[in-house]
């Protein structure tokens, strides 16, 4: 088994205009590594949704992407307020985003459901007042 290729990004929560920049970078790198377009699309959309969520709800955080022989793992970690009700947050259309976020084209309550849809597994580890870590896996 060859060594994993790893990417690490700090996601700036103070500037919405840069939200999604890490995902664009990951997409570019996976293309350079020659992965199939469908895999790249799944990884980059799931990461993009998560990155936007971190900026909207948690004032940023970190994004790590680890590329193994059999899967790509995306780990998004923040020190935000946590998710009080995961079941509710997973419902399509449920959102706690403010109107100013909707004016920017997001906050339709599709982020988490979309992240689950585009990945083969998704685990949410959240603690109120401490933060959230989301681990997503896409099989190769």
């Amino acid at each position: 088994m060859s060594e994993a290729v790893k990417f690490h990004f700090d996601v700036d929560g103070s500037d919405f205009s840069s939200a999604g920049a890490a995902s664009v970078m990951v997409k570019k790198k996976l293309r350079q590594l020659g992965y199939p377009p469908e895999v790249i699309r799944k990884v980059s959309i799931a990461m993009y949704e998560g990155e936007i969520n971190m900026v909207i709800h948690a004032n940023g955080g970190t994004a790590d992407v680890e590329v193994y022989d059999n899967e790509i793992v995306i780990i998004l970690s923040d020190k935000g307020p946590g998710i009080p009700n995961i079941e509710l947050a997973m419902q399509e259309g449920y959102s706690t985003a403010r109107d100013n976020i909707r004016n920017l084209g997001f906050g339709a309550g599709m982020g988490l459901p979309n992240m689950k849809k585009y990945t083969d597994s998704m685990e949410i580890d959240t603690r109120i007042g401490e933060g959230t870590t989301i681990t997503m896996r896409v099989s190769l």
Binding site: F16, S17, S18, A19, G20, A21, S23, V24, K27, P37, R41, S44, I45, Y48, I52, L104, G105, F106
Partner: peptide, 14 residues
Amino acid sequence: LVNAQVIRTANMMD
């Protein structure tokens, strides 16, 4: 809509 996320979203969706 005019912001950078429009371009990034288009990029994500190929």
